[in-house]
Amino acid sequence: LNLKQAKEEAIKELVDAGIAEKYIKLIANAKTVEGVWTLKDEILTFTV
């Protein structure tokens, strides 16, 4: 999975969960695949 694909998957998951745009922007700015997954997990843990 490359960075672009990771971001697309994570953003789709966050949108489906009804997460606010400000958190989705954090994913869009992530620099690594690991960073994308870590941010996604943290956002889902603390906002859902």
Rank of each mutant, 00 (worst) to 15 (best):
L39E: 01
A20T: 06
E8P: 00
A20N: 11
K7Y: 05
K4D: 12
K7S: 02
N29I: 07
I27E: 00
N2C: 06
N2R: 11
L26F: 06
L39D: 00
E13G: 04
K12E: 04
A10H: 00
K4A: 14
A10N: 00
V36I: 05
L1P: 10
D16I: 10
E21W: 14
E42I: 14
G35H: 14
A6H: 03
E34P: 04
L39Q: 04
K40D: 00
W37H: 10
K31G: 08
A10M: 03
K22F: 12
I19Q: 02
K22V: 11
K4R: 11
K31A: 13
I24Y: 10
V33S: 03
I11L: 05
D16M: 15
K22H: 14
Q5W: 09
G18P: 01
L26P: 03
L14Y: 01
K22L: 08
K31T: 15
E8Y: 10
L39M: 08
L14M: 06
K25W: 10
Q5M: 10
E42T: 10
V48Q: 14
E21Q: 09
K31Q: 14
E42Q: 14
L44R: 03
K31P: 08
K4W: 12
A17E: 04
A30H: 02
G35T: 09
I19V: 15
A30F: 01
V48R: 03
E21T: 09
G18I: 03
K25D: 09
Y23K: 02
A17L: 14
T45V: 08
D41H: 13
L44P: 02
I11A: 05
L26R: 05
I11R: 07
E13W: 07
L44C: 04
I43K: 00
N29V: 07
L39N: 02
I27F: 04
V48Y: 06
L14N: 00
L44Y: 06
T38D: 07
E9L: 14
A20M: 08
K4Q: 14
V48D: 11
D41E: 14
E13R: 05
W37C: 06
D16A: 15
F46P: 06
I43L: 11
K7M: 12
Y23L: 07
E34R: 06
F46S: 12
T38F: 12
K25M: 11
T38W: 14
N29K: 08
Y23M: 05
E21V: 07
T32W: 02
G18A: 04
A30L: 07
L26Y: 06
F46G: 15
Y23C: 06
V33W: 04
N29S: 14
E13K: 06
L44K: 06
E13M: 13
N2T: 15
Y23V: 03
A17R: 12
I11Y: 05
W37T: 09
L3H: 02
E21D: 11
A30P: 02
V15A: 07
E13D: 07
L39T: 05
K4P: 05
V33H: 03
T32G: 02
A30G: 03
F46N: 14
V15K: 14
E9H: 12
T45L: 14
T47N: 13
T38N: 13
K31W: 07
K4C: 05
A17T: 05
Q5T: 09
V48T: 13
A17H: 10
E9Y: 12
E21I: 09
L39S: 03
E13H: 08
A17N: 07
K7F: 03
D41P: 01
K12H: 05
E9K: 14
K25C: 06
L44A: 06
Q5Y: 08
N29R: 08
A20I: 07
V36W: 01
G18C: 05
V15C: 07
T32K: 02
K22T: 09
K4I: 12
T32P: 00
G18H: 05
L26W: 11
A17G: 05
I11S: 04
I27D: 01
T47C: 10
A20F: 05
Y23A: 03
I11D: 01
Y23Q: 06
L1R: 09
K4L: 10
A28Y: 13
I24C: 04
D16E: 14
D41I: 14
L26I: 07
F46D: 08
E42S: 11
L1W: 09
V36M: 03
A30D: 01
A20W: 04
T32C: 03
K12G: 05
I27M: 05
I24T: 06
D41N: 13
V33D: 01
K40S: 03
E34A: 07
V33L: 07
I24A: 03
V33M: 05
G35Y: 09
K4S: 10
W37S: 07
K40G: 01
V36A: 02
A28T: 09
L1Y: 13
I19H: 03
L26M: 11
E42M: 12
K40P: 00
L26Q: 07
A28M: 14
T47I: 12
K40L: 14
D41L: 12
E21K: 07
N29A: 12
I19F: 07
T47S: 14
K22E: 12
D16Y: 10
E42L: 15
F46E: 11
K31F: 06
E8F: 08
E34T: 08
V15L: 14
T32S: 09
G35K: 13
T32Y: 02
I27S: 00
A6E: 04
L1Q: 11
L39C: 03
I19P: 00
E8M: 13
K4V: 10
L14P: 00
I24P: 00
L14D: 00
D41V: 13
Q5G: 06
D41S: 11
K40F: 14
V48M: 14
D16V: 09
E8K: 10
E42F: 15
K12F: 05
E34C: 05
E34H: 08
T47V: 15
G18K: 05
T38H: 13
I43C: 03
T32N: 04
L3F: 03
V48S: 15
L44T: 04
K40A: 06
A17K: 12
L3T: 02
E42V: 10
V36Y: 01
K31C: 07
F46R: 10
E9F: 10
E13T: 08
Y23T: 03
I19R: 03
V15E: 11
K40Q: 04
L1C: 07
V33F: 04
V15W: 08
N2Q: 13
F46I: 12
A28F: 12
E9T: 11
F46Y: 13
E13V: 10
Y23W: 12
E42N: 08
E9P: 00
N2H: 13
N2V: 11
E8G: 04
G18E: 03
G35M: 15
G35F: 07
A10E: 00
K31D: 13
I19N: 01
G35L: 10
L26V: 06
G35D: 15
L39R: 03
I11G: 02
I27Q: 00
L1G: 07
E8S: 08
K31N: 12
